[in-house]
């Protein structure tokens, strides 16, 4: 029986990336925490209905579970959104749109991956046209597992994300910006020639100056 104790292959790549990030910004200042506290009270969600998980977003927003009491509300366009919710499996066709939307969001931005399909492919583990591990293509800040996770679980996931933001911790968008080449290589591997245009991210290379 094969037991995996260490990561292997690209899994190690990912862990190395995350470790270096964690050490660099381990401490956060008072201003960071104040800003984080203000930010965590208001999350605008771009609920891109990518997969079947989108069905759970509606009860989350409506009267029964009422996510608005946590300051979570929908946003019509990526420009106004803070959180991108990937609701379930991602077909390659959708991935392209999701990447485009994510790159059009304004920093700070967060990604919540919903359901097991976004973690390891779930029931589509051997499908030819869905991606298996979302984290290879977009930096995920919070996973909510289940198939599908109920709205309570979603709320808990959002609350955990809010705590993370409130602590002023660095989030996925920094990882994305610093490792853009790695992410783009992964994306190119599955999308091939069909990549979204590069003008939405090529300023990352310029060191982020306007």
């Amino acid at each position: 029986m094969y037991h995996k104790s260490e990561c292997e292959g690209f899994q190690c790549e990912q862990r190395m990336l995350e470790e270096s990030l964690g050490q660099e910004n381990a401490q956060t200042g008072l201003v960071d925490r104040l800003v984080g506290w203000l930010r965590q009270r208001s999350l605008f969600v771009l609920a891109y209905g990518t997969g079947c998980g989108a069905i759970e977003m509606r009860p989350l927003m409506t009267s029964r579970f009422d996510a608005e009491r946590f300051g979570i509300i929908g946003a019509p366009t990526p420009r106004q959104a803070d959180v991108l919710v990937i609701s379930g499996y991602l077909a390659l066709k959708t991935l392209k749109r999701v990447i485009r939307s994510y790159e059009q969001m304004q920093e700070p931005k967060y990604v919540i991956a919903l359901g097991s399909c976004a973690i390891n492919g779930g029931m589509y583990w051997d499908s030819y046209n869905t991606i298996k591990q979302l984290d290879h293509y977009l930096p995920v800040d919070m996973y909510i597992n289940g198939c599908m996770p109920r709205p309570e679980a979603l709320i808990e996931g959002f609350a955990a994300l809010q705590k993370k933001i409130g602590r002023g911790e660095p989030s996925g968008f920094k990882r994305y910006r610093e490792n853009i080449d790695w992410y783009k290589a992964n994306q190119r591997r599955v999308l091939g020639e069909n990549m979204p245009p590069d003008y939405t991210y090529d300023w990352y290379h310029a060191g982020g100056v306007a």
Binding site: T77, R79, P197, Y199, A210
Partner: peptide, 20 residues
């Protein structure tokens, strides 16, 4: 106090429902 303000890299950098 503009923070990092940058000009869109292309006139087609529009929020267009995920389409390009």
């Amino acid at each position: 106090l503009r923070g990092r303000m940058r000009r869109a890299g292309s006139p087609y950098d529009l929020s267009y429902a995920g389409e390009v």
